[in-house]
């Protein structure tokens, strides 16, 4: 029996076989599913912020930032036997939850760009995404086949 692995905010987890990975209510945060179809090794990350480099003191988790969480998760997947060349990504989130005229608060868009940049640096192609707009998303990821479901209160459920 596979496990249901709940990925919190500023967290990532790795599953395989018939594990199901879930992260709830992504707002401006981004969920990134990495799936290796050859081994079924699957990682789901939930980042909050684009960039760790401005954070000077060390008492915050690397799992919070796009530029640190994604390389760390990929490293762990490879250590478990995942094949770099077979890994593909699906991403969701990066919404603007509250519309304001002040663009300083559009962290969602900055998160989308940062996740894309981090994946490009890791040479992982993005094969599907559901990003931006103005609503929250829950992401469910089946390790057995790489399927990803996005559910939201306004748009219902869809597969990406």
């Amino acid at each position: 029996m596979g496990q249901k692995l709940i990925v919190g905010i500023s967290d990532w987890k790795i599953g395989r076989g018939d594990d199901v990975l879930v992260t709830y209510a992504l707002g401006s945060c981004i969920g990134t599913c990495l799936y290796d179809r050859t081994t079924g090794i699957s990682g789901l990350s939930h980042i909050m912020l684009p960039d760790s480099t401005a954070i000077i003191d060390g008492h915050t988790t690397r799992m919070k930032f796009a530029d640190t969480a994604l390389p760390d998760m990929l490293e762990k997947m490879k250590a478990m036997g995942a094949m770099q060349g077979a890994i593909k990504a699906k991403i969701a989130g990066g919404a603007i939850m509250f519309q304001t005229s002040n663009s300083k608060f559009n962290i969602g868009q900055r998160n989308i760009e940062a996740v894309k940049a981090a994946l490009q640096k890791l040479r992982i192609p993005i094969i599907a995404e559901d990003t931006g707009l103005n609503y929250g998303r829950t992401m469910t990821f089946w390790a057995e086949n790489g399927a990803v479901e996005i559910s939201s209160t306004v748009m219902g459920k869809k597969m990406i």
């Binding site: 209510a25 962290i107 306004v154």
Partner: peptide
């Protein structure tokens, strides 16, 4: 004020992101 109707987790991610940058 700005308002939205959505999942609580997505709503609360906004203060988490803006207040939580320096800590967890």
């Amino acid at each position: 004020p700005v308002m939205t109707i959505d999942m609580l987790g997505a709503i609360m991610s906004v203060p988490a992101i803006e207040m939580g940058e320096m800590g967890d």
